[in-house]
Structures are given as C-alpha cells and as structure tokens.
Amino acid sequence: MMDKALLIIDYSYDFIADDGKLTCGKPGQSIAQAIARKFEAYIAEGQPVFITMDLHDFNDMSHPESKLFPPHNLRGTAGRELYGAVKEVYDKFRNHPLVFWIDKRRYSSFAGTPLHQYLTERQIKMIELTGVCTDICVLHTAVDGYNLGYTMMVDKDAVQSFSEAGHQFALSHFEHSLGMTITGQSC
C-alpha cells in the first residue's frame, strides 16, 4: 500500500556538477549517495518517487529567475539530467511505474505542476523531501506542502544548498515553523 512518497528536487547536473551552470558544488555532491539509497529503498518498498526538475527555456527573459540567476537547467541540455549516483538509479528505474518525472518552472514542486494531484490520487499524505537547494526549492516545496496539509520529513543528509547559513536556516524553519520531522546522522 502506498502511504508515502519521496521527492527528489532539482538534483541536476547544472545544480550539482563542478562545472554546472548554477552549482552548489561539493555540498550538493556530498548528498548523492543518500538520495540514491532512498530512491532504491522507496521503490523496493513499493512507494513512489517523484523527480521534480527545474525547467527553463533559452532566452526566456520573462521568467523571474532570469533577473536573479544565470541561465541554467535549459530545455534540451545535459544540464537538466540527474547527477551522479542519483542518475544511475534513475536510469535503472526510469520506466518503473512508481517513478515520475515532473518539470517545474518555479521554486516549489507544487507550483503549476500536477504533483498535488498525483499524490492525492494515490492517497499519499506523507512526503519526504530531498535535493537542492535546501533554502530555495526545497523550502518553497515544503511551505506549499505544509499549506496543502501534507506531513513531511527531511533527512538533513539528503538536502544541501549554496551556503551553510541558508541550509541551516531552512532546516530550522522546517522543524520549528512547519513541524517537519528532521532525520540524519547528527539527529
């Protein structure tokens, strides 16, 4: 019975690789194995995995992020591919009926996507968030999830950001403002 889901948020080449277009680099790379293990565990347990991936178009100056960040995760580029061990697991399970790829154009995985509908159809009430960046897309997804009534958890070893200060702020916000369960090695 499906009762929970894993979200892998923006774990792309552009956000993780040393030469990615908007990379958080080594901190993002350090969580690859934790996300890959969770991915495999959720599939083994018969629970769905949703990959939500940032999508931008070339020369789309109307998108608000175009004023904030350099071009990244551009449609049709290798920058949108999953990175490292997470890509390896995805390649193994890409056609599995419990694996879903959802493109998103805003920070939140819920904004303008069918994610809430997919979760509702499967009667999923609990979601675990992983990926990057803890204080941007993961945070905005968590706030929307909270407002939609989901119970949420995050493993601090499976999220990361550009800055340690932003990462720690988001973890604190998850726990103290959104009531999320925080797990991880130092918990």
Rank of each mutant, 00 (worst) to 15 (best):
Q29H: 14
E40M: 03
F39W: 05
F58W: 10
L68E: 01
L68I: 06
K21F: 02
E65P: 00
D54H: 05
M53E: 14
G25W: 04
A34L: 11
E45I: 07
H63A: 15
N73S: 09
A44P: 01
I35L: 09
P71W: 08
D60E: 15
H63M: 14
P48K: 05
L55R: 12
Q47S: 03
M61W: 11
A34R: 04
K38E: 00
P64R: 01
N59I: 03
M61I: 07
F69Q: 06
H72I: 02
F58E: 15
G25C: 03
I31M: 03
S30E: 15
G25L: 10
G46L: 11
D57I: 08
I51Q: 05
P64S: 07
A44I: 01
A34D: 07
H72Y: 03
F39V: 00
T23Y: 03
F39E: 05
K21C: 07
H72P: 02
S62L: 15
D57K: 14
T23H: 01
T52A: 00
E40A: 11
K21H: 13
Q33P: 05
S66P: 08
I31L: 07
E40G: 09
E45D: 12
Q33I: 12
F50K: 02
K26P: 07
H72Q: 11
Q33V: 08
D60S: 13
V49F: 04
S62T: 15
L55T: 14
P71F: 12
G25T: 03
F58G: 04
E65H: 06
F39Y: 08
P27H: 14
S62K: 15
T23F: 03
F50Y: 13
A44R: 07
C24V: 10
G28R: 14
I35V: 13
A36N: 07
N73Y: 01
Q47F: 00
K26Q: 13
A32S: 15
F50M: 01
Q33R: 12
D60K: 02
A41N: 10
Q29V: 09
F69A: 11
A32H: 11
